[in-house]
Design a binder for these strands. Sequence first.
DNA 1: TTATAGTTTAAAGCTACTTTAAGTTGAAAA
DNA 2: TTTTCAACTTAAAGTAGCTTTAAACTATAA
Lengths: 136, 136
Amino acid sequence: MGYSIGGASQKAGISASTIRYYEKEGLLPSIKRDKNGIRSFTDEDLQSLKIIECLKATGMPIKDIQKFINLCADGDNSLQERYELFLDRKAVVQKQISELKEVEKMIDFKCWYYKTAIEAGTEKIHANKSKIISTV
Amino acid sequence: MGYSIGGASQKAGISASTIRYYEKEGLLPSIKRDKNGIRSFTDEDLQSLKIIECLKATGMPIKDIQKFINLCADGDNSLQERYELFLDRKAVVQKQISELKEVEKMIDFKCWYYKTAIEAGTEKIHANKSKIISTV
DNA sequence: TTATAGTTTAAAGCTACTTTAAGTTGAAAA
DNA sequence: TTTTCAACTTAAAGTAGCTTTAAACTATAA
């Protein structure tokens, strides 16, 4: 029987309208319909959605994901190309993680900045550190 | 003298048009202009840009960043609120990091999947692992 | 003095969705 | 049996966060 779009949406944690949009953009070419035109999702379709979300999480544009989906349809001919695609994505996601760690450091600093300012009753205690601290 | 928008753009690693957009959205209320209307950025303005980028990196919408900028103008009255905002953002960024680590794991799996498939000459070696592996 | 490089604004274009509107379908309640 | 309700369908419009384009202005270097 498969899942309805509502069921697939719940299982995948993606809104139904986003799934429809992905299908329209060619990211889900294998989704079947019943005689009334209602979509029926298999477990494989849900796995495809997971891969799509994974690539999207690395910041890959929809059009590039669509190209990857096309590569999959090419079968064994595109194995090397798909391998390299994931090697590239690994580098991207590692960069993203290290950038977010820097962001976390900055946030930690701001937490300290405000905590000490609250204790002192005023932000002024951090004055004349202009090179290090902005007023924003 | 301060920096021109081009100089600020280079220093901050943000495009000039994005900076203009941020100013228009009220994220940079303190940027001065010369008599001809040309923007002049101080080092403090660049620091503000860094904080904006930091909040944006946590996925904070422009409108919420704008609210934070307004809080800053409230001075010491909003210290507690700003502190809590950064505590929230710390939790968000930590979640983002752990999610990206999961994404990296999935990519690692895909790298292994394609590497072994290339060695075998075909993706078929991974057949009947349907619960674990999708064809996409 | 005239290029050219950089600035300005407003408006249009783009991506990745989300929301709305109007219609269809199947099952449960009256 | 009828009707009502939730869930599905599509097309089109709306939104966020930029980017690009067009037309105008300005400072400096050749």
